[in-house]
Write a protein that binds this DNA or RNA. Sequence first.
DNA 1: CTACCTGCAAAAAGTTTGCACCCTC
DNA 2: GAGGGTGCAAACTTTTTGCAGGTAG
Lengths: 162, 162
Amino acid sequence: MGTNKEKSVQEKVEQRMAQLRAYVSANQMKSTRQREKIAEIFFGSSDHLSAEDLLLLVRQSDASISLATVYRTLKLLVDSNLAESRNFGGDGQTRFEVVDDQEDHHDHLICLSCGKIVEFVNEEIEQLQDKVAASFGFTVTRHKMELYGYCSSDNCEKSQKK
Amino acid sequence: MGTNKEKSVQEKVEQRMAQLRAYVSANQMKSTRQREKIAEIFFGSSDHLSAEDLLLLVRQSDASISLATVYRTLKLLVDSNLAESRNFGGDGQTRFEVVDDQEDHHDHLICLSCGKIVEFVNEEIEQLQDKVAASFGFTVTRHKMELYGYCSSDNCEKSQKK
DNA sequence: CTACCTGCAAAAAGTTTGCACCCTC
DNA sequence: GAGGGTGCAAACTTTTTGCAGGTAG
C-alpha cells in the first residue's frame, strides 16, 4: 500500500488548495489568511465536520477566526464544488465533507449504536441507480445513500451513544 | 386500478389512526381534538410536508391549532414509528412522511430543476446494500437513498426553482 | 486605492420549552 | 379531580447578514 496509485495526504490537500485558488481568482475573490487556513484544515481532515467542529480545529492555529468566516468559507467550498454538505441522522447538525472530483465518490454506512461511519463504493449499485432513474425519465447527476444499522466492532456494544 | 390489492386512502388513514390511538393509550397519553386532526390530515397527505406546511393544512379546518402542537404531534408520530423525518437538499427544512410498516418502503428521485419528487423501490438494490454492509460487518436496519438529477417532465425546464 | 473580507453582534429561521389554563379519562 | 395537552411567548440552536474597519491585488 502507498505506492504510485495513492497520493499523499499532503499532495491531495495541495491539489484542492490549487483548485480553490483557481476558483477564487477566477471569480474576483481574494486569497486571505483565514480562507487559506480554514480550507487547508478542512481538506486535511477526513472526518465529517460541522461548522463548529471546524472552527475549533481552525482556532488551534489561529484563535481570531470567527464562526461567520468558517460558514462563509464552507459556502464557498460548496459553491466551488470542493465540499458537500450532509445531514446525517436528522440531528440538526449539518456536516461537511471533501468532494473528490469524480474519482472517489462514496456512500455511508452508519452504526446506530456506536456512531461509527464507514465509507464505501459499489459500482453495481451505482449502475442500478442510473437504470432505475432512467426508467422514470430521470438523469442522475449525484446521489446520497446512507445505510443505518449495527456494526460488529468490539467496543461498539459497550460505548453506546444515546 | 383500485381493486382488492389497494386499500382506499380512507382505509389507510383509518388504519394509521387506529395504530396511533393504540400507542397513545398504551402510553398514558390522551386523545385530543388537535392530535386527531393533525394526525388525520398528515396521514391523508401524500406529500413530504414540513411542520409549517402541515400547520397550514390543519388550520384550514381548525384555525386555532398552534405550530408548537404540530411539532409535538409530529414528534409523537415519529416516536410511535408512524412518521419519519427527512432532510432533502440540505435546505434547512425538515420534512415528514408517513411510514408504511414494512410493506411499502421506498427511496427518492429528486429533480434538481423543478423539484419533483418521485418515490421508488428496487429490490435488487436493497439486496446489494445488505450484501455490501455485510462485507463490512454491518447489519442494516434501515437506509436512505436519494438520487438527484433532472427529470424529463414537460413543465420542468420552464418552471425552474432557483 | 478599490473592492473584497473579516469580526462582531444582531437578525433570521426552525424547533423546543415553561407556564397558566383547559380538557380527557 | 388529576394528569396529560394546548396556546402563547420566550428560549434555543444553527446559520445568515449588516456594518465598520482591515487588507489583498
